[in-house]
Design a protein around this nucleic acid. Structure first.
Length: 572
RNA sequence: GCCCUCGUAGUGAAAUGGAUAUCACAACGGUCUUCGAAACCGUUAUUCCAGGUUCGAAUCCUGGCGUGGGCACCA
C-alpha cells in the first residue's frame, strides 16, 4: 500500500513537471492526519518557487483527476503536508492478508550471526544474557527477512587467565579437593571461582608467573599428554555442555563454533605474513602492532602479537574473521558484543581493510552490533561470583516474581506446565526490558518494580495475546466464522495496517525498539477496544467482523514477539 | 589528557530533520454478578546549558557541563 501511494505521488509530480526521485511516504504520528502522509510539497515547494500549500493543492487536484478506489480522501494540512485516508475496503484487505513481507535486505542472503560467546571457565552471567537477547533478535530478524542464517559462537578456551585457573585447580587437587568430584552445578561455580582465584593469586605472587605460563603452553598444545592437559580437557567439556544447556533454556540455539585457540593460530599467521617495512603491521618494543593513519583520531595503536610471541585479542579477532569467511563465506556477518569493545573492533577492521585481496569486501560485510550493560537492581539478588549475577540466578529471581504476581491464576496447571509458563513469562519480561530500548543503551532491570510486569512489559503483551486466543476459541465454540464485515475501521484497524512496514524498519535497521513500541500500541488499542465493546454477541455479522480484527491482532502479536525471541502461549 | 557514547516528566523508555514531543511506572481519583482486572478510564508532570544551520531541531554543526566506556602487550 505504501508503495502504491509512493508511485502515485511520484507519477503525479512528474505530470506537474517535478522530477522527484526522493518521495517519502510515512505513517503520521497522529491518526487524525490520515493513514499515510507525504511532505513532498514542503521539500519541492522551495525548489520550484511555489509555496508548499500551493504545490500540495496542485498535487491533490491532479491525483483526484483519476481517482483511485483505495483512497477515501486526501487532505492538505499544517505547513503543506498531504495526508491520505484509505478506504475501508483497502484497510480490511490489508488486514486480511495472511502473510506479507516487505523486507528485502536479507532475502536470499547467507548470514552469519555470532553471539553468546562464553569464556569456558566462567559461568554464563548477566552480560551473556544481554548478549543473547540482542543476538537472538538479530538472528530472527534476518531469518524472517528471508536470510539463510547461521548462528555461531566463539568460546574462549585458551588464555593465560585460563591457565591460572587450571593452576589453582591442580593445587586444590594436591590438597585433596578434586573439582571433578563435585556435582555439576557446583563444578561450574568452582571453575568460575578458580578463574577469579587464579588471577588474584598471580597478582599477589608475580614472581611465580612462569608456572602459569608453563600451563598455558600445555593447554595451547593439543598433542600434549599429562594430568594438566587432562584436567583442562575435562573442564572444557563440562563447560561446553553447560553452555549448550543454558542457551537452550533461553530458547536460543547456536549451530557452529569456532574456538579462540583456532582463531589465535590463524590470526598469528596472518599478522606475521603482513609484518615489516611498508606492510600493515610493524614491530615495536618486541611486540607486533598496528598503527592507524594519523587522521583517524578515533583509532588507537594496538598490539596484535605480544612480546612473548602470543596472539592477542586483536590477532584472534582478525583470525576469526578469516575463519568465518573461509568457512561460511557470508554475505553479511554480524557479531554481537558489549559496547566496551567498540573501539577494539574499529581498529581490527581498519587493519583488516588494509590487508588487500578479499579483505576489503570482508570488512564491508562485517557488522559489529554493540550492546549496553544490564544493571540488575533486585533486592533479592545474591551474587555468587564476585559481584556478577549469573544468568540462571537472574532468571530464577524473575520467575519468583512472576509466581507471586500469578497467585492463584496458575493453580490449575500441573507443576511442569507451571514451570514452563513461569519461564516463558520471566523471559518475556527480560527480553522486552532489553529490546524496548535502542541497542547499545544500558538497561536497568528491577524485578521489584512494576516496570517490567505491568503496562509496557513482556507479560502485558503475553496477556493480551492470550486474551485474543481465548476470544477466538469462544468464537469457534459459538460456530462463528472469522471475516470482515461492513463496519468502518477504527484506530485499531488503522494501526494494524502498518505491521509489515514497522517490521521492515525494525529488522533492516536492527531497531527492535520500533517493533516493541508498535506492539505496545496495538495491544493498548486492542485492550481499550475490548473494554468498551462486547466482541462476541448474538449479532453474528458484528461478532464475525470483530473476530477478524482479533485474529489480526493475535497474528501481529505472535509474529512480532517471535522476532523478539519471545514465545507467546495461548493461555497464561 | 585524547577518542567514542549517551543526556527527554519524580522513575524507566520512544520519536527516517516534520504537524500539539509519545508510552509506561510511581502519585491521586474511578471501573469486576456479562467474552481473561497480569486489564480499562481520568488528573498532574518532560527535551542539560549557550550559540548556529533550516520553512521546520530532542534529532544536524560549534562550544560548555554531566554520564558510561575505551586509549600497547587481559578478553
Amino acid at each position: 500500500m505504501k508503495e502504491k501511494i509512493e508511485i502515485l505521488v511520484q507519477e503525479v509530480l512528474g505530470v506537474i513537471g517535478i522530477e522527484a526521485n526522493d518521495v517519502t511516504i510515512e505513517r503520521p504520528g497522529d491518526s487524525t492526519h490520515g493513514d499515510y502522509s507525504t511532505n513532498v510539497a514542503l521539500v519541492y515547494g522551495k525548489k520550484t518557487g511555489a509555496s508548499p500549500r500551493e504545490l500540495a493543492g496542485k498535487l491533490v487536484e491532479k491525483i483526484l483527476e483519476t481517482p483511485a478506489d483505495y483512497i477515501e480522501k486526501i487532505e492538505i494540512a499544517g505547513a503543506g503536508f498531504t495526508n491520505f485516508f484509505l478506504a475501508n475496503e483497502a484497510i480490511q484487505s490489508e488486514n486480511a492478508k495472511e502473510e506479507t513481507t516487505h523486507i528485502t535486505k536479507y532475502t536470499d542472503k547467507k548470514i552469519l550471526v555470532e553471539h553468546s560467546s562464553p569464556n569456558l571457565f566462567k559461568p554464563f552471567h548477566i552480560g551473556h544474557l544481554m548478549n543473547n537477547i540482542i543476538g537472538e533478535f538479530v538472528t530472527r530478524a534476518t531469518k524472517i527477512g528471508g536470510g539463510s542464517t547461521t548462528t555461531i559462537s566463539f568460546p574462549s578456551d585458551v588464555s593465560l587467565g585460563i591457565a591460572k585457573a587450571v593452576f589453582v585447580l591442580l593445587e586444590d587437587k594436591k590438597e585433596g579437593k578434586d573439582v571433578l568430584a563435585l556435582s555439576d552445578d557446583e563444578k561450574i561455580i568452582a571453575f568460575g571461582e578458580a578463574y577469579r582465584r587464579g588471577v588474584a593469586y598471580f597478582d599477589e605472587h608475580p614472581d611465580e608467573i612462569e608456572k602459569a605460563k608453563e600451563i598455558a603452553r600445555i593447554i595451547y598444545d593439543k598433542k600434549h599428554q599429562s594430568e594438566t592437559r587432562e584436567l583442562f580437557e575435562r573442564a572444557k567439556e563440562i563447560n561446553t555442555a553447560y553452555f549448550i544447556k543454558i542457551i537452550s533454556e533461553l530458547g536460543s540455539a547456536i549451530q557452529e563454533t569456532i574456538y579462540e585457540s583456532e582463531a589465535g593460530e590463524r590470526g598469528q599467521e596472518i599478522v606475521l605474513a603482513n609484518t615489516g617495512e611498508g606492510k600493515v603491521f610493524t614491530k615495536s618494543e618486541g611486540a607486533i602492532v598496528y598503527v592507524p593513519d594519523e587522521e583517524r583520531k578515533d583509532l588507537h595503536t594496538a598490539v596484535f602479537i605480544n612480546s612473548e610471541g602470543y596472539p592477542t585479542y586483536e590477532a584472534k579477532d582478525l583470525g576469526l574473521i578469516d575463519l568465518k569467511f573461509s568457512k561460511f563465506n557470508p554475505d553479511l556477518s554480524y557479531f554481537i558484543t558489549d559496547s566496551e569493545q567498540t573501539s577494539h573492533f574499529k581498529v581490527v577492521l581498519d587493519a583488516g581493510a588494509k590487508l588487500g585481496g578479499e579483505w576489503g569486501a570482508r570488512v564491508e560485510k562485517s557488522v559489529h552490533v554493540p550492546h549496553g550493560r544490564m544493571l540488575f537492581k533486585g533486592q533479592k539478588m545474591s551474587s555468587r561470583l564476585g559481584g556478577v549475577p549469573l544468568a540462571l540466578d537472574v532468571i530464577s529471581v524473575v520467575e519468583e516474581e512472576v509466581r507471586e504476581r500469578a497467585g492463584e491464576k496458575t493453580a490449575h496447571l500441573s507443576s511442569d506446565e507451571k514451570k514452563k509458563l513461569e519461564r516463558e513469562i520471566a523471559l518475556s519480561a527480560l527480553r522486552i526490558a532489553v529490546l524496548r530500548a535502542k541497542p547499545g543503551m544500558n538497561i536497568n532491570f528491577d524485578p521489584d518494580s512494576s516496570l517490567s510486569f505491568e503496562g509496557d512489559s513482556g507479560p502485558y503483551l503475553l496477556y493480551t495475546h492470550a486474551r485474543t486466543a481465548s476470544l477466538l476459541e469462544k468464537g469457534k465454540e459459538k460456530g462463528y466464522e472469522v471475516k470482515f464485515g461492513n463496519i468502518p475501521a477504527g484506530d485499531l484497524e488503522r494501526a494494524l495496517l502498518h505491521y509489515e512496514l514497522i517490521l521492515k524498519e525494525a529488522t533492516e535497521n536492527l531497531a527492535p525498539q520500533k517493533l516493541v513500541t508498535y506492539l505496545f500500541e496495538v495491544a493498548q488499542l486492542f485492550n481499550g477496544f475490548y473494554a468498551v465493546n462486547q466482541i462476541i454477541t448474538e449479532n453474528k455479522e458484528n461478532s464475525e467482523h470483530y473476530l477478524a480484527v482479533v485474529k489480526r491482532v493475535k497474528t501481529v502479536l505472535k509474529d512480532g514477539l517471535w522476532v523478539l525471541g519471545i514465545s507467546a502461549p495461548d493461555k497464561m
